[in-house]
């Protein structure tokens, strides 16, 4: 077989995924089971996100793929190429130009708009999975809204470490009902989960799709005496000087030298183009 359907998946599969997406939108934070298909990339490498994107994309879309916030990480490149080949869709690295953005582990710094869809790749969709490995049990807990185990875990963290020891994939409660895993984004990104764009989450191997509609209430779990703290490295970006962005720490020599740079590469280069400078920005040539 040499010719695949638009966006790779056959129409019946896309309809099945689309129905799951709509149920997800109707029940924010609830994990809808779907008959995930084997994709031509491995499970765990974004098959859920890819299936959701394939079900959403139209030929008019402008598609952006990021991994760790960057457009040029190898798996982001690989997924972008896949859709260029199978959907003939236009791609972009600019957040503002994208209509569909597939992401792994980050939410872009640029606030998203009503005209955008953010698709997350999710490894383990069940926020309770590491507390209770059994699907039969966690399903009951969600049904009964029985989230005590999660609060006990977080409280034990505080008792032992003085802090909640979860730095990424920090659990949230959606619309006062379902506890949800926001995928392994750093907790710094959690406050952005309340946004204008549609957020869709795809977990291929675990066969789950879930969603957050625009302007939906999303609260990071916490306690009155230990409020949620979306902290990040206490540095400005060394390239663009931003003080409000999530930073990667880069080791630059073998003597402990390091620098901090925006993980959102598009945001950082845009700021640099706008004239923002950081500690390690190249010395400017005199204006010509």
């Amino acid at each position: 077989m040499s010719d695949y359907n638009f966006a790779y998946l056959d129409e019946q599969t896309k309809r099945m995924i689309r129905r799951a997406i709509l149920k997800g939108i109707a029940i924010p934070g609830y994990q809808v089971p779907f008959a995930s298909r084997e994709m031509p990339m491995p499970y765990g490498w974004g098959t859920g996100g890819v299936q959701v994107s394939a079900a959403c994309l139209t030929p008019d879309d402008s598609f952006k793929v990021i991994d760790q916030g960057a457009d040029d990480t190898t798996n982001a490149v690989s997924i972008r190429k896949f859709f260029e080949h199978t959907a003939g869709v236009a791609t972009t690295e600019h957040t503002v130009d994208a209509t569909v953005i597939q992401t792994r582990h980050r939410i872009p710094e640029e606030p998203l708009t009503e005209d955008q869809i953010l698709v997350y790749q999710v490894p383990i969709p069940e926020p309770l999975r590491f507390l209770e490995p059994r699907e039969t049990e966690t399903r009951k807990m969600h049904a009964l809204e029985e989230y005590g185990l999660m609060h006990v875990k977080l409280y034990e963290d505080i008792a032992r470490h003085g802090n909640i020891a979860t730095a990424y994939a920090y659990p949230v409660k959606v619309e006062d009902r379902y506890v949800m895993d926001p995928s392994p984004i750093p907790k710094f990104d959690n406050p952005k989960l309340e946004m204008a764009a549609i957020q869709l989450f795809g977990a291929g191997r675990e066969q789950r799709i879930y969603a957050i509609p625009p302007y939906t209430k999303v609260v990071s779990l916490d306690f009155e005496d230990h409020p949620f703290d979306p902290s990040k490295a206490d540095h400005p970006c060394d390239l663009c000087g931003a003080e409000h962005t999530y930073l990667d720490e880069v080791i630059i020599d073998d003597e402990g030298g390091r620098m901090f740079v925006c993980s959102d590469t598009d945001y950082c280069s845009k700021r640099q183009a706008d004239g923002h400078r950081g500690r390690l920005s190249p010395i400017e040539e005199a204006a010509e």
């Binding site: 129409e11 896309k14 997406i21 709509l22 109707a26 959403c56």
Partner: peptide, 19 residues
């Protein structure tokens, strides 16, 4: 053109349900 028309129609269905 089912793949393309249904993709557009789904986006409409998604948009109105999401808003």
């Amino acid at each position: 053109n089912a793949p393309v028309q249904s993709a557009h129609a789904f986006r409409t269905a998604l948009n109105v349900l999401s808003r």
